[in-house]
């Protein structure tokens, strides 16, 4: 009963949806028709980006209302959400995850490390940026990127 009162009192926490982001979407993304399932791959991140991705799919930003959803298997996914510089250990798993996604497939590189290795550039355990291992369709800059920026990148794919 106390939970019921809490639900009544809290009401909606999701913030009003911002304007639809401008900017070009990958041409193939139109085929998805407002439904994009994401598989998150941590290729060697410090988990700063994971916290932001967690809040993107949380109640306040609520990415699900734009048709985006996190799934448990790359076979169910349309796009990969890759964070962190690609470490030597994650190079092959990342490539194999990409190959497991059925066509049409997309890759979103989230955070500065995923774009250009960030502060880890040149470190002995780093194999390269995400773009060196798999083709990248969208990038989200920031260290860590703000949830609004990640949402904008997801919405360009879902088109909603």
């Amino acid at each position: 009963m106390s939970l019921w009162r809490k639900i009544r009192k809290t009401g909606r926490v999701a913030e009003p949806a911002p304007e639809r982001p401008t900017g070009e979407a990958p041409p193939e993304a139109a085929k998805l028709g407002g439904s994009v399932q994401f598989r998150h791959v941590d290729a060697g991140s410090c988990n700063g980006c994971e916290v932001e991705i967690g809040s993107v799919f949380g109640p306040v930003y609520d990415a699900e209302r734009y048709g985006a959803r996190l799934v448990a298997s790359p076979r169910h996914a349309d796009a990969l959400l890759v964070t962190g510089p690609v470490t030597r250990n994650m190079e092959v798993p990342l490539r194999r995850t990409y190959e497991a996604v059925p066509e049409p497939r997309f890759v979103v590189a989230v955070g500065d490390c995923a774009r250009d290795c960030g502060v880890f550039a040149g470190a002995y355990g780093v194999a390269g940026a995400v773009g060196d291992v798999v083709p990248v369709d969208a990038e989200v800059p920031g260290c860590p990127p703000e949830p609004e920026a990640i949402i904008a990148a997801l919405r360009r794919l879902t088109g909603r």
Partner: peptide, 20 residues
């Protein structure tokens, strides 16, 4: 979604998923 304070994807979302 509404009870968790979220806006939700809409009732038609499973059909969008199936179409895709």
């Amino acid at each position: 979604a509404r009870m968790e304070g979220r806006a939700g994807a809409g009732v038609l979302q499973p059909w969008r998923d199936l179409r895709k």
